[in-house]
Design a protein around this nucleic acid. Sequence first.
DNA 1: CATGAATGAGCCTTCATTCAT
DNA 2: TATGAATGAAGGCTCATTCAT
Lengths: 212, 212, 212, 212
Amino acid sequence: MDGGEPKFRRRKDERPAEIVEAALAVFAEKGFAAAKLDEIARRAGMSKGAVYLYFETKEEIFRAVVVRAIAPNVAAVKAMISTHPGPLPDLLRGVARHVAGVIETTPIGAVLKMVVGEARNFPELARVWHDELVAQALGALTDAIAGAQARGEVRPGDPRAYALQLISPILVAVLWRETFVPVGAQGFDVRALMAQHIDTILHGMALEGARS
Amino acid sequence: MDGGEPKFRRRKDERPAEIVEAALAVFAEKGFAAAKLDEIARRAGMSKGAVYLYFETKEEIFRAVVVRAIAPNVAAVKAMISTHPGPLPDLLRGVARHVAGVIETTPIGAVLKMVVGEARNFPELARVWHDELVAQALGALTDAIAGAQARGEVRPGDPRAYALQLISPILVAVLWRETFVPVGAQGFDVRALMAQHIDTILHGMALEGARS
Amino acid sequence: MDGGEPKFRRRKDERPAEIVEAALAVFAEKGFAAAKLDEIARRAGMSKGAVYLYFETKEEIFRAVVVRAIAPNVAAVKAMISTHPGPLPDLLRGVARHVAGVIETTPIGAVLKMVVGEARNFPELARVWHDELVAQALGALTDAIAGAQARGEVRPGDPRAYALQLISPILVAVLWRETFVPVGAQGFDVRALMAQHIDTILHGMALEGARS
Amino acid sequence: MDGGEPKFRRRKDERPAEIVEAALAVFAEKGFAAAKLDEIARRAGMSKGAVYLYFETKEEIFRAVVVRAIAPNVAAVKAMISTHPGPLPDLLRGVARHVAGVIETTPIGAVLKMVVGEARNFPELARVWHDELVAQALGALTDAIAGAQARGEVRPGDPRAYALQLISPILVAVLWRETFVPVGAQGFDVRALMAQHIDTILHGMALEGARS
DNA sequence: CATGAATGAGCCTTCATTCAT
DNA sequence: TATGAATGAAGGCTCATTCAT
């Protein structure tokens, strides 16, 4: 008679997060244009009108979904940057652990797919993702690699390209999971892939005689 | 009765291709749902009604765009597979040249983006792409790597993961071009990236003392 | 339990009037359909729910606004009718003073505009205004003019038309103020207009040789 | 089998006028906000979607209705101005005939009601009506009266107020017809009213001994 | 009494698709 | 074949009204 789920929830503070969570699922599944507010509202457990108490437009919800997904990952980037800039292998292995955790516990893969798919329709979101997240991570990696090159640990070559080589399999594995696994493709074990990849690349980047 | 000025009358046979070409541009720019048939027809230089003489629905056009983009690349995959399975480096460098050409002369990047973005709405297209293109290419690479491992050219490790490691930077570079370059990000020189990547990975995969 | 700070607690009795006052402003500004209860409640200094404690529907509020504006003017009409039916000029000048005061101190102009604008949507309100106010005033004037005609003070002619001629400029001046002055038009000095108009009409209606 | 009303009318040129005509009826009846596009389309004999082939928004339709009603009346104003500037009575009687015709053959009364009712929501329409129609007519009348004063035909007094006095009963009669006649009020015979009014005012404005 | 979060019906607008010409 | 006017089903958004607190 008293507890349970009241018909009118009256939980103003929690509603936006509930909407964003539901919207993430629907947007990831349908894309922006094909996502219906009816469904977002239903999955969020409220009426369509209630959604508009917290967000002005469907676009605003989309923005909130995409922008909100940045925050937890900025921490990962920060960690990457601040991690002891000792030998490159230690840095990469430490970062890899962190990234694997993020990939497994957050929906960043789905959001990444949305950013790629809607970049032309929402350029400012692509810009935010690039400037605050992707470019930061790539830049930090690039710097670390350049440092290792200066220390003679790594062979000559474009450090930004090396950085991209390092990141790419993870990104592809995540997009693969979103794109091809649902239609029957075999997935990739992200942690195993990362481990093998780091080994390979470290090996491949190393100067002869300077193997770790 | 006589046909008047047939000068500018295109033949029926060319129309579907014109529609697919125009649709590719619009779908790549807007995504499936936000693309308007009005715009596709206009860019194809015909009326909206004419489009429906050649395609039943908007979805059919989308399917045609995505499926048609497979053909030229199947050739690349076939080439990769049929290439003499001699030393891995030769294979990779040959394939890379081919792939670079495809990337530079076809809109495969845009179509890849569409496949990723609409995989949930058009699972059969994701499946076609996977089965006929991506899995084939990955499988062929995997086989080649496994063969090299058997010959003692390559270190132990999951050959399928090695294959993913090999192709990922190209895919990411292409998606990067579609997603972040339009909002001001610095692009990647695909040929240089591929060259450096193959060198790095070959180095990294090689057994000690078996360097190429 | 004790009531806390009753300082700013308005009494229940005053709330309806506050609502009607606020609603008048909003209805006059936006029209019935475009007026939002949110704004009425806000201007009345209470919550939307509180409004519904005193009125059943938005329509009821509108009716209250329109009907309430009748009362003070019914008095004017009564006064006009009961005024000693002496010479017409005295009557008109007395009434004019009264009417001018009403126009200057009440929002009757705004309400008149609402009645005109919403007559088709609220016919019973148009009827009330007509039956209780406009027709009464016009009828009283008509009778007074007919009486003056019988006494030989006024030229032959349709007394009801004379009555309309007499009141029209005031009505138009009021609607003009509501409609065109806000977009930059020059207004009319109601008292001066009334004075000149009564002079003109009295002159014009007078029988030759019977000038006042 | 051939003539009749084809299901698809294919009469692009006539559609806008049909829409405006239907919209005038609906707007006059319901007001802008309460008018439904469904009903406008139905009365215009087409689907809702067809309306949007010719007008961008509901507001555009409203504007078209209000602006279109100006054109025929601008002619009346021009006529008023250009009419032989001889003795005032001739001018007024000539103009009155013209105006009566306009009132009887056009829906200007309904549009005037709409302008008054929606002036706050569409100020630019109120401005257009004032600047191009009402102020022009009032100004021309004012000038004619001032000229007559200069010639000694008319008594001293504010000529603009005289002009308003002249116009007002017509306007009020028209609004009366729109507002109170539908709820049972007795109407006014516009031509008779105009004739009596002009007589009265001319009498009333005339200098003693200068009667026409 | 009072609040304001929540509801849900309704409307404007869009756009894939059809069809008379 | 080709056209493009026309259709009609949705969907985003609003807002009068309700109701748990």
